[in-house]
Design a binder for these strands. Structure first.
Lengths: 169, 169
DNA sequence: GTTGAAAATGCGAAGTC
DNA sequence: GACTTCGCATTTTCAAC
């Protein structure tokens, strides 16, 4: 799907505040409310915008501790096996297979260090896990709303209006 | 701030879909629209809900590649130094100081592998960075909207209604 | 993409428990 | 103190242009 400058401005506005009215967004990007709605509907249908979500302060809900855990797995382990195993835990915020020594990296959010410990223990108990290596987060330095400044840098799909170098300022 | 069962149900509803109407949320949790709005207003004022944001498919915007980069820094480096240095890059989605060998972990999202490489190069050029160790993401397995299932597990602030053990099912 | 009108929703006041 | 109902302003939505 092709995205023009207006689409990206609308997306940026919605990433910043998803409860703005169409009229407000329209005023900001130079369109009528109807036109904005039509574009937003299209962006949702085509899967560019996957939904709208409240940003919650994890600490306010008691989630004070997080950790990154590297997983070292047996040779024949499939990514889908790892996905199934870790997706079971609500504490697992993110997970990905990666290059390097470890096979996967799992991001955990929990209520305290003991809680983190218990989750790691249960992940390590999975049959395919050979060993784990975990790092507790001491202090979070950056935590952008996913896609906060995407429009500043990325081009629209395959067609880029600004050269990649511009992304580095 | 104290959160009761209703607050957490409302938060869960808004994390799932931040553009639901107050009436819909109210129907779901058993309150009138007005009551829901008052609670949401209070949750925003107290900082539990920090905002509302559109979820965007990074791929649709051309962000097809991500990486995790461990930073090894000089002895006297302060977390705030690292924060200032990495926050400059829109490609840096998250960063945190961690326990273990490395001093910090930086999560990068970029348009392609070359783009990742350039960002890492520029981070490595910071005066306090001794060396870096990076892992490119092969495939993302889990990517929950931050706080998607927080209410399932965490207690409300310091007062916990369910014992921590319940979090592990 | 815009305008305009009908339906739905947001929002605050007043009243109830 | 918190919730509900009610009335009016705003917004959403969908037509026709």
């Amino acid at each position: 799907m092709e995205l023009d400058r207006l689409d990206r401005a609308i997306i940026a506005a919605l990433v910043e505040d998803a409860r703005q009215t169409y009229a407000e967004i329209g005023h900001h990007v130079g369109l009528s409310a109807s036109a904005v709605k039509r574009r937003v509907d299209r962006l949702r249908e085509t899967g560019v915008i996957t939904g709208f979500s409240a940003r919650v302060a994890p600490r306010a809900l008691g989630w004070t501790t997080e950790a990154y855990v590297e997983l070292f797995c047996q040779g024949k382990t499939k990514p889908s096996d790892i996905a199934l195993a870790v997706a079971k835990f609500p504490e697992v915020v993110a997970a990905a297979t990666i290059t390097g020594e470890a096979d996967a990296l799992v991001h955990i959010r929990a209520t305290d260090v003991r809680h983190v410990e218990r989750v790691i223990e249960r992940i390590a108990a999975e049959a395919f896990v050979v060993r784990t290596k975990s790092s507790i987060v001491l202090s979070r330095l950056v935590d952008e709303p996913p896609g906060a400044s995407l429009d500043e840098v990325a081009g629209a799909g395959q067609v880029r209006e600004t050269p990649p170098e511009a992304a580095l300022r």
